[in-house]
């Protein structure tokens, strides 16, 4: 960036800051129309940005990409816009809309000096374009982070590890299992085994339409890993087709398996030395049919 132009622009910004800000804000007014961002917030951002721009230039920063502080400021603005649901062009407009007010000031300052006019305009365009691109880049990155976080959340939501009894966990799997998801699920299960001090984990695949070789291998590995940690796994709810596919694929799920989650739970209870017995009739409490509970008004 030509340092002469920078000095000229810095002077311009210093002397005409208020006027530039006012003109810029009026072009930015459209952005506040739908109320996603307040007018005061935009004003603060614009004022801070202009000040940072001026300081960067009067500080003699002659790089065409702007000072680190300027870019940091834009990054945070851009990130907050991404979170608020702005589009990339709406976000970049924040920077680009500063061009018009500044060009007008440059023109007013130089009058008929065509060379100076072209020089300053070019320098400013170059800088603002770079800053605009930076804005979009940060915006893009923020969106990707949001998507990644949502993916993580979904995969966690879709694989809850539930406690059935003291020492017994169940992992009801629902939907198609791909290799990546299976891995996350299995890691969660093993961690839950530690957290709950569970001796037995039931992996219920009733809700899984298909199991390919890779997924079957992950299942087997999980069972093996759980055993190394000192817990047993029971697989329940293998559909007939899945059982067939697996045998045809040559994968044998060499683990304890039960037809249903209920059967698996019964087995798990037996393993920890519990059993389910019917409550003796008339044994404890009053039968429900006697009507209202004590104290109720009739």
């Amino acid at each position: 960036m030509a340092s002469k132009a920078v000095t000229a622009l810095a002077g311009l910004l210093a002397s005409r800051e208020d006027k530039i800000l006012a003109a810029w804000l009026s072009t930015l007014a459209g952005a506040t129309a739908d109320g996603r961002i307040s007018r005061t917030e935009i004003e603060t951002q614009a004022r801070d940005f202009l000040r940072a721009l001026r300081e960067s230039m009067s500080g003699g920063d002659t790089s065409s990409t702007g000072s680190a502080r300027l870019r940091d400021m834009l990054s945070s603005i851009s990130r907050s816009r991404a979170l608020l649901g702005f589009s990339p062009s709406e976000t970049a407009t924040f920077v680009f809309s500063l061009k018009l007010p500044l060009f007008e000031e440059i023109r007013a300052a130089h009058g008929s000096d065509g060379e100076a006019l072209a020089r300053d305009t070019w320098t400013l365009t170059e800088l603002l374009d770079q800053l605009g691109l930076h804005t979009i880049e940060v915006f893009q990155k923020s969106r990707e982070e949001i998507i990644q976080r949502q993916q993580d959340e979904i995969s966690e939501l879709s694989t809850p590890v539930v406690k059935l009894w003291n020492g017994i966990l169940a992992l009801p799997l629902i939907g198609t299992l791909d290799s990546a998801r299976t891995q996350v699920v299995m890691e969660n299960l093993l961690q839950s085994i530690v957290d709950n001090g569970a001796e037995i984990a039931i992996i219920d695949i009733t809700g899984v339409p298909t199991v390919d070789t890779l997924v079957a291998q992950h299942l087997l590995k999980t069972v093996a890993a759980a055993r190394l940690m000192g817990a047993d796994c029971i697989v329940s709810g293998i559909r007939p087709q899945i059982a067939q596919t697996m045998v045809h694929l040559g994968v044998e799920l060499n683990v304890v398996s039960k037809a249903s989650l209920a059967d698996a739970f019964a087995l798990a209870l037996t393993r920890i030395g519990r059993t389910v017995v019917p409550i003796r009739s008339g044994g404890s409490g009053q039968p429900r049919s006697t009507g209202a509970y004590p104290g109720a008004l009739t």
Partner: peptide, 28 residues
């Protein structure tokens, strides 16, 4: 007390320690 990450890695490595008895913690 084998950690989950260690257990997963061992299995992946191909080592499942068939003859070794395991438990979750010292008490068990």
């Amino acid at each position: 007390g084998m950690r989950p990450a260690v257990a997963i890695t061992l299995v992946e490595l191909g080592l499942s320690l068939p003859g070794v008895r395991t438990a979750l913690n010292a008490e068990r």
